[in-house]
Design a protein around this nucleic acid. Structure first.
Lengths: 115, 115
DNA sequence: ATTATATACATAAGATTCTGAGGTATTTGT
DNA sequence: ACAAATACCTCAGAATCTTATGTATATAAT
């Protein structure tokens, strides 16, 4: 399971990016997708995910839509217009941060490295 | 200056790695090195740095040595044996996390991408 | 038939780590 | 003379995370 709390703020970016690719997802689905994409190495806990979703919705970046599936309630999230703009911004921010991290941590390959 | 707010958890790794490369550094020097390596984009604040250094020392990963330079006091930090072991561990943890982040955020280049 | 696991939402206490402001003191540049 | 740089430090508050708890239904296992 390794360490899950390494880069603060990347959860929001993960959520937004997954929703850019998928149009519409519900919370539990997001946790499963991340688990599947990382071979179980990153597990988004519900205690982190739901407050993050609620915050993004409160900021107007996500909109919700409740669906009844069998007898279960699902809350689908999708990007608003503002949310779509924010994905790009958050992605390049994170990208930039990772590049800077490489510059600090791998002093050998400073000029042209690949992400 | 972009966003400086993503560093949570990676600051320890940054400190340990810089000390692996440099044998001995003092706090202010670390802030300047990071600023210089990232063209001013990442600024380690003192409110984050000093508590982090004290914590790493308390955990036995760093040792200190006070030096008088002119009339100024400098507190030099260096890796202990435990600290040297921890660098490797923390680095591969961070490396692994960044790889997983790529897997989530760049769904196109899943099989063989470069870090 | 009962129990455990999976699905699906949510909150809340406590821990950790950061920001931003403040404090002390010396040295160097203007 | 004053500002900025050098050098250390602490602390209130914010943000985000973990862990535990709670509700409820569906499915798999014993």
């Amino acid at each position: 399971m390794t360490n899950n709390n390494l880069i603060k703020g990347s959860l929001q970016t993960i959520i937004l990016k997954l929703l850019e690719e998928n149009e519409k997802m519900y919370g539990y689905e997001i946790t499963q997708r991340v688990k599947e994409l990382t071979a179980g190495e990153i597990k988004i806990t519900e205690g982190a995910l739901y407050p993050a979703l609620h915050k993004l919705e409160a900021e107007g970046l996500l909109s919700t839509e409740i669906q009844q599936v069998d007898n279960r309630v699902r809350k689908y999230y999708s990007l608003t217009k503002d949310g779509q703009k924010e994905v790009t911004s958050k992605m390049s921010e994170l990208q930039g941060f990772v590049e800077n991290l490489q510059r600090i941590l791998t002093p050998d390959l400073k000029p042209g490295f690949n992400i």
